[in-house]
């Protein structure tokens, strides 16, 4: 790896000072499971590496039935996966965090880092989109919030400007009779990058869908919110016809590429299949709540 300076500020104010002072030369470090690989490959060569794991706001995982979830950007995937409130209230996001890489990776990597890395195939991002998460960003000009589906702007690039940090992910409290789910297709059981990933949340009103949100991963240059597919379900019973329409619209919203993991045509097809399945799972879970 190239030579760099390492800082590990213990307050958000100190971290922001460092980020502001070093601008584009600085890169935040959380679990390092993407950054260290990129630095070794020479893809990123920050002069200042700012370890954000000691900052209280970034380590916070706080759920309340009224205010919802404040998920610090540095909370590790394993801390999410082992948290009872997360498993109960956000099972889809929890299962997404729990299938990123191996346990060794989950023990270090964070959902915030997964988002900031900006990969179109990030597993936890479609799950965040399904939950209508907002990214709380702090920077030299104060704070701002960005809907998570707008956070990644192109592969490896995000809305974060020099000097800015992702502080927390803000997720609404689950509505009554709602739940979420995430499914990823890979050709093996563990340890692979998504060919397609789909997250969905479903809120039921009796036997009908009150609202749904579908997030897509690995089928476009950025993770996507499949808006038309999501809205097509409102007011409908989640029967075969409704699922088929949502699957078709989700598939149409995708714009995948051919690569070693799958052809574009295959990915469009799998997007529809996973959309059906993930909506069915989320609805089953919602019925129990």
């Amino acid at each position: 790896m190239h030579a760099f300076n390492y800082e590990s500020p213990s307050t958000l104010a100190d971290a922001l000072k460092l980020m502001k002072a070093h601008g584009e030369k600085a890169r935040p470090l959380c679990g390092g499971t993407d950054l260290l690989i990129q630095m070794r490959a020479g893809v990123r060569q920050p002069e200042f590496v700012v370890d954000i794991k000691k900052i209280k706001e970034l380590r916070e995982l706080k759920f309340s039935a009224r205010a919802g979830l404040r998920l610090g950007a540095a909370v590790s995937c394993i801390d999410i996966a082992e948290n009872e409130e997360m498993r109960r209230n956000y099972p889809g996001l929890t299962e997404a965090a729990h299938l990123i890489g191996s346990l060794q990776i989950q023990n270090r990597a964070s959902v915030g880092g997964n988002l900031c890395n900006g990969s179109p195939a990030a597993d936890s991002t479609p799950a965040l989109i399904a939950l209508k998460a907002r990214a709380r960003i702090a920077g030299p000009r104060g704070e701002r919030e960005v809907p998570v589906e707008e956070f990644v702007v192109s592969p490896g690039r995000t809305v974060l400007k020099p000097g800015e940090l992702l502080v927390q992910l803000l997720i609404p409290a689950p509505a009554p009779h709602s739940s979420d789910a995430y499914l990823r297709f890979i050709p093996r059981n563990e340890m692979d990058i998504a060919v397609v990933g789909v997250g969905a949340s479903v809120t039921l009103d009796g036997d009908k869908v009150k609202a749904a949100r579908i997030g897509l991963g690995a089928v476009a240059a950025t993770p996507l919110f499949a808006q038309k597919a999501s809205e097509s379900l409102a007011g409908k019973k989640l029967d075969d016809a409704a699922l088929e329409t949502a699957a078709r619209l989700a598939s149409e919203a995708s714009s995948p590429i051919d690569d070693m993991r799958g052809t574009a045509e295959y990915r469009r097809h799998v997007t529809g299949v996973l959309t059906r399945r993930v909506l069915t799972i989320a609805a089953e879970r919602a019925r129990k709540r």
Binding site: L29, L36, D51, Q104, I105, N107, R108
Partner: peptide, 26 residues
């Protein structure tokens, strides 16, 4: 050196991590 093989695994505060993906200063 990419976190795929696990040959460098060590326990840090009881959790298995890839020591190739953690800085010594951490």
């Amino acid at each position: 050196l990419t976190g795929d093989c696990g040959a460098c695994s060590v326990l840090v505060d009881g959790r298995a991590v890839c020591s190739c993906l953690m800085l010594g200063v951490e």
